[in-house]
Amino acid sequence: MNILDLIQQGENASIEFKEELPRPESIAKEIIAFANTQGGTLLVGVSDDGKVRGVLEQQNFEEYFSNIARNNVIPAINVITQMINYENKNVIVVTIPKGKDKPYQTLNHQFLIRIGSTNRVATQSELMRLFQQSGVFHYDAIGIDNSSFKNINLNKITGYFDNYQVDFFQEEYPENLLKNTDILTDDFHVTIAGLLVFSLNPQQFMPEACISFAHFSGDEITEELIDKQTITGTLDYQVDTALAVIKNNCQRPSHIEGSKTVQNRFSYPDKVFRELLVNACVHRNYAISGSRIRIFMFSDRIEFISPGKLPNTITIEKLSYGVSYSVNPIIVKFMENLRYIDKLGRGLPMVYKIAKENHKYIKFEEIGEEFKVTLEL
């Protein structure tokens, strides 16, 4: 570990300086804020201006910080503590991982997050997102105010149940069938999942539950726009429509050899774009207001940007190997039954494999409250 590199970054979203050894309560707050966000590093013995002051080696610091992480943080978390000598001064380096059991709280029941170089108490919406990441709470099960059975597309519902040999119109109490399949809540409001998959007009209640597509002439967002569209409707319709839009905007230069048309350059099969679209629609965080899925096509790449972070136990590294996760388990269930996905986690590894086999760049990343996939064209 190069401590100088850490110090030169200054205090930021992932680094905190403490000139002196803080009280356990203060340390616990730093651990909780980092764990609830993206993880981070606490340097003890460094002043706010980056000057190394050092600490006196008078106790077992590894045990001290481990005890705080176990006894002053709910739930307990493991941290890594090291003592590093820099210019004949001891600096304690405490590494806090991105938490797998979010949300973490203090003994006084404070849920803290890291914003920039400061910690603050999570707002209600931020706390809700933390619970979503933990799998304790699922936003897609919430009922929509002022919605009811009349907002459901009965033709689509009938076709959906026909696949399971259920005659919807022969049901004595069809509303109860919709309630028992998570399309309606117990008080007969349409659920978020039911709205997004089976309603007549999802955007009536959730105007940002759509896809923005933009095609730029060059490799920067400031270049001239070739095409721009907003794709609305139910999730399956959005996926199908966005796939058609992407295909129409993909340049596929070709030439004739004999009786065959030969592509001049590699083109991705439809299943690659379809998987990335389904992944964005199914796993986005619909609780984040004022944000929508965005697809940016450039001359050299295409970007799929979806609101929301990965769940607690999922890391960027795991995605290319295959993981099955459900931020929105009810939406996943509906889209799986409509044959848009499976639960085996094979989609992103398939995309990764096809890109790599054809020497194309692909990148998965979390940026703030968004998940982004960049695919070289």
Rank of each mutant, 00 (worst) to 15 (best):
L4V: 13
D5P: 04
L6G: 03
Q9P: 01
N12S: 10
N12P: 03
S14H: 11
F17M: 05
T37W: 05
E62N: 12
N71Y: 12
N72C: 12
V73A: 02
I80S: 11
Q82S: 10
Q82F: 08
V91C: 06
I92V: 08
V94R: 02
T95I: 11
I96D: 05
G99D: 00
P103D: 02
T106R: 02
F111V: 13
I115A: 11
R120T: 10
S125M: 09
L127K: 02
L130N: 01
L130Q: 01
Q132H: 09
Q133E: 13
H138P: 03
G143V: 06
S147G: 08
K150V: 09
N151T: 13
N153V: 03
F161P: 04
D162W: 12
T181Y: 07
T181C: 07
T185C: 07
D187T: 14
T191E: 00
V197T: 12
V197D: 04
F198H: 04
P207T: 07
P207L: 00
F213R: 05
F213G: 02
S217P: 09
E223D: 15
E223S: 15
T230R: 15
T230F: 12
T241E: 10
T241F: 09
Q251D: 15
Q263T: 06
Y268L: 00
A287Y: 09
I288D: 03
G290D: 06
S291W: 07
S299T: 11
K318S: 14
N328L: 04
I331D: 05
E336T: 13
Y340E: 08
R346W: 12
V351N: 02
H359N: 11
H359R: 15
H359K: 14
I362C: 02
I362P: 04
K363V: 08
F364K: 04
E365N: 12
E370L: 10
L375T: 04
E376N: 07
L377Y: 11
